Simulated scan of single mutants.
Amino acid sequence: MILVTGSTGTVGRELVRRLPDGIPVRLMTRSPERVTTMTPAAETVGADFTDDGSLARALQGVRKVFLVTARVGADDDARFLRLAREAGVRHVVKLSAAAVADGAADDLITRWQRDNEELLRRSGMEWTMLRPRAFTSNSLSWAASVRSEGVVRALYGSSLNACVDPRDIAAVAVSALTGDGHEGRVHTLTGPEAISAVQQTAQLAAVLGQPLRFEELGPQEAEAALRRRWPAEIAEALMSSARRQRDGAKAAVADTVRAVTGRPARSFRTWAADHAAAFAPPAKAAEG
């Protein structure tokens, strides 16, 4: 039995779609009613990382886990890994972050991810780390301004990030969960090229067939926007991450997706074409 945590999330739902038929899988979520992607061999379980009892029930009979945690600074990984080991789990595939390998990255989010990786290494279970760059789907945060104004706004618009399609992360996760030889390995996951927000704006405009304008956010403006959405320490960590991107820390491209899955990583343009309806004005979205 495979347990997929974060089964309604960006990567989790794509992973479920790609699992081979017939593999028993349990989809863990705090809100079972939100599960829309199922397979004939799938079951859903309601559980919360803060509730030992619910986690123990979710882990019953499980041998492999796809682990995603999101509460920065919380002890969700420690609790889950303890209960997973007690339940007899053999192999955990963890969604981490590429910044973990960057010695210059010392923000709160990266330190938390490093600590969680170390917890898994010391857990006594087999492990595989997935370390993606930024998701191409992060550009969905531009959808409202693209629809209403034809504008993309971002900080450090010319800085490069080898962003990766969540579908490719999911495909690698499926290989790690169902194939051999992934134990004890770290998979750094990127797209096929490093791309800037300015370049993404141009490619998105070409896909939509409409002009788009890029507007550079200043650091103070960007930080203020982050602080409206996140606690101060998270906003600070995200600003630190943006500065490292500005300095070139996220431009390296890895060929891991091809090496693991046998096909190249999807480009941003491919992702944009597949999700164009999210950016189209209401009339165009309805026509499409």
Score class of each variant (00 low, 15 high):
137 S>P: 08
137 S>Q: 11
137 S>I: 07
137 S>R: 03
138 N>P: 03
139 S>C: 11
140 L>K: 04
140 L>G: 03
140 L>F: 13
143 A>W: 10
144 A>D: 15
144 A>F: 14
145 S>I: 09
147 R>N: 05
147 R>Y: 02
148 S>H: 09
149 E>Y: 06
151 V>H: 03
151 V>T: 11
153 R>D: 10
155 L>P: 13
155 L>F: 12
156 Y>K: 01
157 G>C: 09
158 S>G: 08
161 N>M: 10
161 N>A: 08
163 C>Q: 09
164 V>L: 01
164 V>S: 02
165 D>K: 06
165 D>M: 04
168 D>M: 04
168 D>I: 06
169 I>N: 02
169 I>R: 01
169 I>Q: 01
170 A>Q: 04
171 A>E: 10
172 V>M: 04
174 V>T: 01
174 V>A: 11
175 S>D: 11
177 L>C: 05
178 T>N: 04
179 G>S: 10
180 D>Q: 14
181 G>F: 10
182 H>G: 10
182 H>R: 13
182 H>K: 12
183 E>R: 13
186 V>R: 07
187 H>M: 09
188 T>G: 06
190 T>W: 06
190 T>D: 05
196 S>Q: 02
199 Q>W: 00
199 Q>T: 08
199 Q>L: 03
200 Q>R: 15
200 Q>V: 10
201 T>H: 07
201 T>S: 09
202 A>K: 12
203 Q>V: 03
203 Q>D: 15
204 L>H: 12
206 A>M: 06
208 L>S: 05
209 G>C: 08
209 G>E: 02
210 Q>F: 07
211 P>G: 05
212 L>G: 08
212 L>H: 10
213 R>D: 14
213 R>F: 06
214 F>I: 09
215 E>V: 15
217 L>C: 09
218 G>D: 15
218 G>L: 14
219 P>K: 11
219 P>I: 12
219 P>M: 14
220 Q>L: 15
220 Q>P: 01
220 Q>I: 14
220 Q>K: 15
220 Q>C: 13
